[in-house]
Design a protein around this nucleic acid. Sequence first.
DNA 1: AATGAATGAGGATTCATTCAT
DNA 2: CATGAATGAATCCTCATTCAT
Lengths: 186, 186, 186, 186
Amino acid sequence: MDALVEATARILVKEGFEKASTNHIAEIAGVSVGSLYQYFPSKEALVAAVIDRHNEEIMAIVRTALTEIADTPIDKAVRQLVTVAIDAHRINPKLHRVLAEQIPRTGQFRDVEAFNREIHTLVRAYLESRRKEMRKLDLDVATFICVSAIESVAHNTVLNHAETLSEKMVRTLVDETTRMVVGYLR
Amino acid sequence: MDALVEATARILVKEGFEKASTNHIAEIAGVSVGSLYQYFPSKEALVAAVIDRHNEEIMAIVRTALTEIADTPIDKAVRQLVTVAIDAHRINPKLHRVLAEQIPRTGQFRDVEAFNREIHTLVRAYLESRRKEMRKLDLDVATFICVSAIESVAHNTVLNHAETLSEKMVRTLVDETTRMVVGYLR
Amino acid sequence: MDALVEATARILVKEGFEKASTNHIAEIAGVSVGSLYQYFPSKEALVAAVIDRHNEEIMAIVRTALTEIADTPIDKAVRQLVTVAIDAHRINPKLHRVLAEQIPRTGQFRDVEAFNREIHTLVRAYLESRRKEMRKLDLDVATFICVSAIESVAHNTVLNHAETLSEKMVRTLVDETTRMVVGYLR
Amino acid sequence: MDALVEATARILVKEGFEKASTNHIAEIAGVSVGSLYQYFPSKEALVAAVIDRHNEEIMAIVRTALTEIADTPIDKAVRQLVTVAIDAHRINPKLHRVLAEQIPRTGQFRDVEAFNREIHTLVRAYLESRRKEMRKLDLDVATFICVSAIESVAHNTVLNHAETLSEKMVRTLVDETTRMVVGYLR
DNA sequence: AATGAATGAGGATTCATTCAT
DNA sequence: CATGAATGAATCCTCATTCAT
């Protein structure tokens, strides 16, 4: 049931992890607890589904961006990546925050690593295709550092500055981050 | 009781957040639950104390480094900062991971922000004192981006690569991160 | 549906009473839960049916034996009864054990008493027809004691000694039990 | 807490196994559920304690009887054993019935076997000491048969005839059972 | 007649917290 | 100050049963 994942996400955002009891989730989703367990083997699995859905939304954006970037020179490409990273974090910032801060990660954490790996692979592939524009460097190291930097700027931008985030400020951050990363690669 | 904080940290590392019940903590600390509540008003406060202690250890290192750096030119200084960031994360990587992944942050989260603010202030002050070595830039933005980048590289380095982290690899990461940040500032 | 009773019995034997949920039973029987309730008003009724079927199998053997015995002198007859009692318990010893140990008896318990009464009646009738071979005694009391003794020896033999039950041991037990009962009646 | 075992027994007798929820037990015992779990790791353990206590009461009687019997000739001894067996079952017949019929035995069932073994050992020892009064027979087999017979008569007497059990009838049953067993041994 | 998704009461268990000793 | 037995609200989950299709 998709309504269950939606209800869970909504509760997570509006009431926090503590209030996300299975009975409450079921109630908000408009079904019975029994039904919840018909579709999800445990509360953990349900939360994992929320995380997955959120990650998938982010990945969809990132994947698209990386595809479009394929034939773009580094400076434009990096700018695009930074923009997309911030956009991705802004999809549902409150959920993103709750997921990052309140969910005790266990088991399903592997999934997050899978996403990380995918991003690493995609970015690395792009960088490899653009090697001639770049100085000589270890691709894995460079990918790791660039992805970390871009991700953290996006993450901190959205999480810390929460709602008070002017478009001008975003543009500035994109500019600067792009400058740092491009400067590093060239 | 310091033994309580220590016991909590130990349990967090060895058995995970789920096993960290107040009774278990008291038992490991060698006192009774009642005593626990003599010193800490709630479990949350106890966990917060663990977080604080860990953050304080990190901050001690960072503060020292930033003091020593005061009169150092940017390139050396940044290298020093990156090194110190990784060292700080390596103090107690397992605890760091548990704190980052398993602890549902609530109330005491303000504290973490306080540390963030302090670091921001210190770094910003350093950058300000070295303005002449740098291109013209918004100090707050630059500080934000540099701190984010350095912190994320350190964090991901220690968390993802866990124990398999050769000194050579560390040096490479320090080199590269330094290069990125210095290149950005100049 | 006979498949339902069969499935229940199979689950009882292989997985125990705890695993015998109506959904699981229906699944093993290859039908839907709905169908289960088309034929049995409750889970209890279904379990009762299993008990009944098992008891009926036992009773069939016992009835036959008691019929064949009709014109047999006491010593041969008792030996036959003891043999048959053990045989009856060996039909499906595992089911017998589960039925005896794991099934919380409620309502349908009356049925078991019905079987007991029938056996009592049949045995009593036989003893009555053989009164001349026996000393003077209260037939009801004698029947009660003999049936109890024979049944318990059979029950304990099969339940306790489980699979490790040599034919020689069975013969010894039959001999001895027969001796006791016949000695008592004469 | 002994009150918990007592409360459980009382509920078992008055309301049946189905109503014996941990919360209800705690309530009747006049404590909180939490306290229940301070003393018993699970509901199963609590029920096991009830069974144990009941078995222990029975065993106390049986042990005493077997001690007193030591120097008694077979006929008097057997009569004593039969009497004691019935007495033992009459300690708390309702509880005995519930324990026998409604409790799904698992795990702790081993205990019951321990009691059985003890009885077997004690009776066998007595019989061995009286060998000269008896015909030549396999002591283990004889013990098994005699114990089974006596136990089943006692059990069925108390369980089936419930409250309608005149002293006269008891005396008759004791007489007859004794006759059967003694006749068998000699 | 068959299906199986949906129901929801109910139950076992945990654990942060209190307070009388 | 320390103790630790006692508390009980709260939570996750199960499963017999129903009923619209």
